[in-house]
């Protein structure tokens, strides 16, 4: 499977996660978000960028519980809770935000 962005074809798996991390850029993120029915706001970008930094440091996409706790620590309790994150990413913050961030499906995503 693949998606078309700026005339380039980007390979994805059958669930729509892009296969090569290095393919990712902001245009691709916007396209992936559109397919998820999400209009990227500053708050969305904050979470997506956080995920990319987390992956860069630890080589894994965090489980949702870990993401929530880490966001709370970095961005404050008003953002570090599942209500806030599910409002941004209704079908699951770890799953949807990871896809938009160009990361593999989170380990331990249930």
């Amino acid at each position: 499977m693949s998606i078309e962005v700026n005339g380039k074809s980007i390979e994805t798996d059958e669930e729509g996660y892009i296969l090569n991390l290095s393919d990712w850029d902001e245009d691709i993120a916007n396209e992936l978000a559109k397919e998820e029915g999400i209009d990227m706001s500053e708050n969305h970008w904050e979470v997506v960028n956080f995920l990319r930094e987390y992956y860069d440091e630890y080589q894994i996409a965090p489980a949702v519980r870990v993401l929530t706790k880490a966001i709370g620590k970095k961005l404050g309790a008003e953002k570090g809770n599942s209500k806030y994150l599910y409002e941004l990413f209704p079908y699951g913050p770890a799953k949807q935000a990871c896809k938009i961030a160009g990361l593999p499906k989170p380990t331990g995503c249930i």
Binding site: E57, Y58, Q59, I60, P62, A63, V66, K69, A70
Partner: peptide
């Protein structure tokens, strides 16, 4: 190969 040694540092988060 993937350098997964970085992932051990995430265990505390879990």
């Amino acid at each position: 190969m993937k350098n997964f040694s970085a992932t051990y540092s995430a265990l505390g988060d879990y």
